[in-house]
Nucleic acid binder design. Structure first.
Lengths: 329, 329
DNA sequence: CATACTTATGCAAGCGCTTACATGCACTGT
DNA sequence: ACAGTGCATGTAAGCGCTTGCATAAGTATG
């Protein structure tokens, strides 16, 4: 393995100068720079980022903890975080917590000594547990506001309220909410929002579920909804909604005439042959870029931090969701 | 930040002993161990993996380069690699090359100084370029055999040949191959396999495409196939196949009577309301675990490597694909 | 021409941890 | 009683790089 010392020796400069050629080129004379670079790639020198990290006191590594790596919901977020931090010169370690709060804490502990900062996407752990493990460490949470940490979240509530207004306006009164997986924090919130929005407008919300967020769950829930005496349904996500629509088609029921269907999220681009879905779309990509940007900003700060002695107040960014009105309502 | 030196001082032992408590506990007396550990977590000591990496000469980091991060095809592979290397005590850096050969090389260069080894999933770069950037570095490739590096690949050809046999046996003679994205290495190989398998059995292969691997591509290609005078089609993947089936349903054509449909990969679990797809499924999860395991083995070797002085011969693991016969044939 | 300032480079002290080697000590067998 | 053995611990030399400070030119200023 060829080290910077080898390069320096061969180029006839000191180790310090060689180092500066790569780290602070503006401090080095032009010919020296050229010579060092020439020698470096003649020798096939590859900088050892570990040593650099140790000397600099920061690793250039950021972590992202997601509840599910292979989920179309998080995919755009992951990609966006990835390219955002990459363009700031960081590398990203993505870890799957499998939606398990204990894993989240365990992972955070493991990663603390390794990365410069951490993003938690939709964390399920208690705020206390997170605060504990992340104290004094750069953190950004997504879709979860914790007072001590920066966060970015998507305002699904506004979209849901708008959707409820739409349904009421189109004459629906008794509306089903077909909820997502048991224990989902967002699920409870969504139902509450729907109920409030409906009751404020003379409607009524009926909660069904919980169901797995899968197409089959939708298919299987259809007859239950039919018997439930509702004229519209708001499904936890697009997979479930598609399941409902497939089941409806199978028994000859018409959407939206017999049952109006709407969903949060629009995960799949399958909508061919089926009416286009009315859905509340969340800007997950944007959320990812923002989270990445906020984390990079936090990590970069310490160098020149005077005014805010480690106690700056946390920023909370809220992104709007969009109600996309399709043919299913 | 509390360092190991702080812990050692407070516990009244030398730095070396404190270090051994965490790295080689069997070398330290029981009470000493207990005391050090007690002090360590009283002080909230967190080991600095960067320093450890530098001293040990290895980072405990592995890299995985995929052409597309958010792809259902790679998802099981990514998860499997993840958990495999994690269980061996490594952390994983996943980077998206966006299917671009230059990115692959650039990423490899960037990561070389940072990780202990690299997995390339379905790399598109020339073998020479990869060999160049990865010389003398632990590497495993997936779905690409390079003589210098370990690899694991899935034998789609066998499955395709079996599928062709099945189609011939069921009376099909002129069969379409609806290919995937332009420039895909696997695509050419697949068509060749199909053609050979069919011609050996008195059938004929017609190549259509290339098309994007999307549902809509299938939908749009349907009428072209109808005019093409084929009785069966082998699609690049399940998305395309579903598109075909949706289009068939839309015009009242029957699958498999009017057109038999098969595909490589079975990516989506949407198959409800549609006949179940005949598909060649690839064990991507298993491929991932194997790749992870092989890389870990390579990385671990150097310590006690005597016999194989850096020139051990590369291992090539081939995993079988499975032909799953559904109702669409 | 002396002074101050700028620019390019070198020196050496770390960054926090691991580990080969040395030390000290309590046993064991003879 | 003494060398031999093995265990628990300490000493110190790094791992490869960055960076504050010192130094030595060269340039501008009065």
């Amino acid at each position: 393995m060829v080290t910077l010392a080898d390069v320096a020796r061969q180029a006839g400069v000191s180790l310090a100068t060689a180092s500066r050629v790569f780290g602070r080129p503006e401090m080095v004379g032009a010919e020296t720079t050229a010579r060092v670079i020439e020698v470096a790639d003649r020798l096939g020198y590859i900088a050892n980022s570990t040593a650099r990290a140790l000397a600099r006191g920061s690793s250039g590594l950021l972590g992202l903890v997601v509840p599910q790596l292979s989920s179309s919901y998080f995919a755009p977020l992951i990609s966006a975080v990835q390219s955002e931090v990459e363009s700031s010169g960081f590398e990203l370690i993505i870890v799957d917590s499998h939606g398990c709060p204990e894993s989240e804490v365990e992972i955070a502990g493991r990663l603390r000594g390794r990365v410069d900062g951490l993003i938690f996407a939709s964390p399920r752990s208690s705020g206390a547990a997170l605060a504990e493990v992340a104290r004094g460490f750069p953190i950004v949470t997504v879709n979860r506001e914790l007072s001590d940490f920066d966060s970015v979240s998507v305002d699904v509530a506004a979209g849901l309220t708008e959707l409820c207004g739409l349904l009421i306006a189109r004459g629906h009164r008794t509306i089903a909410y077909l909820g997502g997986p048991a224990g989902s924090l967002s699920d409870d919130g969504r139902f509450l929002t729907v109920r409030t929005a409906l009751e404020d407008n003379g409607g009524e919300a009926r909660r069904f579920g919980p169901v797995e967020p899968k197409v089959s769950a939708g298919t299987e829930s259809f007859s239950m909804l039919q018997r439930g005496g509702v004229s519209a349904v708001i499904a936890y996500n697009a997979l479930v909604a598609h399941g409902l629509m497939l089941a409806a088609a199978a028994v000859g029921a018409k959407v939206p005439e017999d049952l109006a269907v709407a969903a949060v999220d629009d995960l799949i681009d399958i909508g061919l042959g089926l009416p286009s879905l009315t859905a509340i779309t969340q800007p997950m990509g944007e959320a990812g870029s923002s989270a990445g940007r906020m984390l990079v900003a936090q990590v970069a700060r310490p160098r020149g931090a005077d005014s805010d002695a480690g106690t700056r107040t946390a920023q909370h960014l809220v992104l709007p969701s969009t109600l996309v009105i399709g043919e299913t309502c």
